[in-house]
């Protein structure tokens, strides 16, 4: 394709990205560095601040249960409520990623079963990539940037909750060193979604053709946008290998939680995605 077409594709995907994803990297980095006129985020660093900030996370849907009124019981409930709210937000984010996928030229013309497969296998990878701009080495923004939750607090939760986020921090700190901006991210997300090697795809060729065009667009974009960053295109693509391992580990952890946490019930949309995934 001509470079003008590739640039138009990049512009189109960037516009979709801005339309469907409420918290951009530019905004997240402004919040994290204090360079915004908005209020600084509320910091959650322990159980007390989690309870104080709960109303901002909108995680009070689960009623307090009568049989657990001890301090330990209340803390377990606060943790569970927090992870339920994370699930609700994840389900919303899946919906946003779906709209973004549908905006990729040619996606909605693919076999409908293949559209389902691409989303099923791609969406958690996309969500992990989208988490990276919200994170720094010390913590992560949540609730659309209203809250900063510290990495140490997440590590201090009981098992297996404490194991959920640490691998994402390790990945994100390295991924953020590539310094992609929102327009680069939009193309990279489309590349991830259009992976022709997902299990069970019926018609791989049109998916690979679409991905090839987006890859050309990403390569051109990175060369233009980051002229001094050597081999950036290759470095970005290498992250896709790390992502698959992260998703496999994440799904195993969720399965473990389903078995060990009596109060744990997985959001139906997330259940659909994770059932028979890897």
């Amino acid at each position: 394709p001509e470079s003008a077409d590739l640039r138009a594709l990049a512009r189109h995907l960037y516009e979709s990205y801005l339309k469907y994803f409420p918290l951009t990297k530019a905004k997240a980095r402004a919040i994290l560095s204090g360079k915004t006129s908005d209020n600084a985020p509320f910091v959650i660093h322990d159980m007390k601040s989690l309870m104080e900030g709960e109303h901002m996370i909108n995680c009070r849907q689960m009623p307090m249960q009568e049989h657990r009124r001890s301090d330990v019981g209340i803390m377990r409930e606060v943790e569970l409520r927090f992870f339920h709210s994370c699930q609700s937000r994840s389900a919303e984010a899946v919906s946003e990623v779906t709209e973004f996928a549908k905006s990729i030229p040619g996606f909605v013309n693919l076999d409908l079963n293949d559209q389902v497969t691409l989303l099923k296998y791609g969406v958690i990878e996309v969500l992990i990539i989208m988490m990276a701009p919200l994170m720094n080495k010390d913590g992560t923004l949540i609730s659309y940037g209203q809250i900063f939750m510290t990495r140490e607090f997440l590590k201090s939760l009981r098992k297996p909750f404490c194991e959920m986020m640490e691998p994402k921090f390790e990945f994100s700190v390295k991924f953020n060193m590539l310094e992609l901006d929102d327009s680069d991210m939009a193309l990279f997300l489309a590349v991830i979604i259009l992976s022709g090697d997902r299990p069970g795809l019926l018609n791989v060729k049109p998916i690979e053709d679409l991905q090839e065009t987006v890859l050309h667009s990403l390569e051109l974009q990175l060369k233009t946008n980051h002229p001094d960053s050597l081999q950036l295109f290759a470095k970005v693509l290498q992250k896709m290998t790390d992502l698959r391992q992260l998703v496999t580990d994440h799904v195993q952890l969720i399965q473990l939680m389903k078995e060990t946490e009596l109060d744990w019930c997985l959001h139906p949309l997330l259940q659909e995605i994770m059932r028979d995934l890897y």
Binding site: Y20, S88, A91, E92, V94, S95, E96, T98, E99, K102, V108, L112, N113, Q115, V116, T117, L119, K120, G200, H267, P268, L269, E272, I273, R275
Partner: peptide, 21 residues
Amino acid sequence: LKEKHKILHRLLQNSSSPVDL
């Protein structure tokens, strides 16, 4: 496959903005 993924299928078929879940 789409039978086992009813919500994903609905999200894909929905023609407007993100679905309220």
